[in-house]
């Protein structure tokens, strides 16, 4: 296998990636909107991020521009940090409320 990764990626047409990422993103959005469990919402957000990552990688490969892939690393690093902080918050919420239902967290208002 002397094909490098961009060539492997290019074996699938670009439109497929776009449709795939769009679907993935939509699932994420729907999940965020419809679910009340904080952890699932969290995972859906990750889904959206990864949809973007896929898209970035694909475009990067198709246009032979490494910037997109660099961006993916940034997003993954930030997402990892975010997960660490976010999960910690969720754990704290669970300790206090014995639940992770976001609709119970409505005290941050006027």
């Amino acid at each position: 296998m002397d094909q490098n990764i961009p060539q492997v990626i290019q074996t699938v047409p670009l439109e497929y990636y776009v449709f795939f990422a769009a679907t993935l993103f939509s699932i994420g959005v729907l999940g965020v909107l419809t679910r009340r469990n904080a952890i699932i919402i969290f995972m859906c957000v990750e889904l959206m991020l990864n949809a973007v990552n896929v898209l970035l990688t694909a475009f990067s490969a198709f246009r032979a521009d490494p910037n997109g892939q660099v961006f993916v690393f940034f997003i993954m690093a930030v997402a990892a940090a975010e997960v660490a902080v976010g999960l910690a918050i969720i754990v704290m919420i669970y300790r206090n409320l014995q639940s992770t239902d976001v609709n119970l967290l409505n005290r941050l208002k006027f």
């Binding site: 967290l105 409505n106 005290r107 006027f110």
Partner: peptide, 8 residues
């Protein structure tokens, strides 16, 4: 009033 506090 817009700030309902409901995450949804």
């Amino acid at each position: 009033a817009v700030q309902t506090g409901s995450v949804e």
